[in-house]
Lab assay of single mutants.
Amino acid sequence: MTEYKLVVVGAGGVGKSALTIQLIQNHFVDEYDPTIEDSYRKQVVIDGETCLLDILDTAGQEEYSAMRDQYMRTGEGFLCVFAINNTKSFEDIHHYREQIKRVKDSEDVPMVLVGNKCDLPSRTVDTKQAQDLARSYGIPFIETSAKTRQGVDDAFYTLVREIRKHKEKMSKDGKKKKKKSKTKCVIM
Rank of each mutant, 00 (worst) to 15 (best):
R135A: 13
L159I: 12
M188H: 14
I142S: 01
K178L: 06
T144F: 15
A130K: 01
I142P: 00
A155V: 12
I187C: 15
T144G: 06
M170S: 09
H166M: 13
Q129M: 05
Y157H: 12
K167I: 02
T144H: 07
L133R: 03
K169E: 11
T144L: 15
K178E: 11
K167A: 12
S136P: 04
K128T: 11
K178C: 09
A130E: 05
K178R: 02
Y137S: 04
K128Y: 05
E143D: 12
D132M: 04
K169H: 04
T127M: 08
H166Y: 13
Y157D: 12
D154F: 05
L133F: 10
K172M: 14
I139S: 03
S136R: 02
K165E: 08
T127P: 09
K178P: 06
K184L: 00
L133S: 03
R135G: 06
Q131M: 12
K167C: 04
L133H: 02
H166A: 06
K176T: 07
K169W: 07
R164K: 15
K184V: 00
S181F: 00
R164V: 14
K165D: 15
S145P: 00
V152D: 04
D153E: 13
K167H: 13
T158S: 07
K167M: 02
M188T: 15
K169S: 11
Y137L: 15
R164S: 07
T127H: 07
M188C: 06
K169M: 10
D132I: 04
T127A: 08
K167G: 07
V160P: 00
T158D: 12
K175A: 10
S136F: 10
K172Y: 13
Q131K: 08
K178D: 15
R164Q: 13
V186N: 15
D126V: 06
G138M: 01
V152Q: 04
Y157R: 14
K165H: 03
H166T: 09
Q131C: 09
S145E: 14
R161A: 07
Y137M: 14
T158A: 06
R161S: 11
R135L: 08
K177H: 09
K178H: 05
H166G: 10
K178N: 11
A155H: 01
D126H: 04
T183A: 06
K176A: 11
D126G: 07
T144S: 06
Q131G: 08
V160A: 02
H166D: 12
K178S: 14
I142H: 02
M188P: 15
L133P: 01
Y137R: 02
M170A: 12
R161M: 01
M188R: 10
K128D: 09
D153Y: 12
L133M: 12
Q129P: 08
K176R: 03
Y137V: 08
Y137I: 14
Q131A: 11
V125D: 13
Y137P: 01
I142C: 06
V160S: 01
D153S: 13
D154E: 13
K167L: 02
A134C: 10
K165A: 12
Q131V: 07
L133G: 01
V160M: 02
T127V: 08
A130Q: 06
K167D: 12
A155Y: 01
K165Y: 06
H166C: 07
V186F: 06
K128R: 07
R149C: 13
D154W: 03
S136L: 09
R135W: 04
L159N: 00
K178I: 09
E143I: 02
L133T: 03
K175D: 13
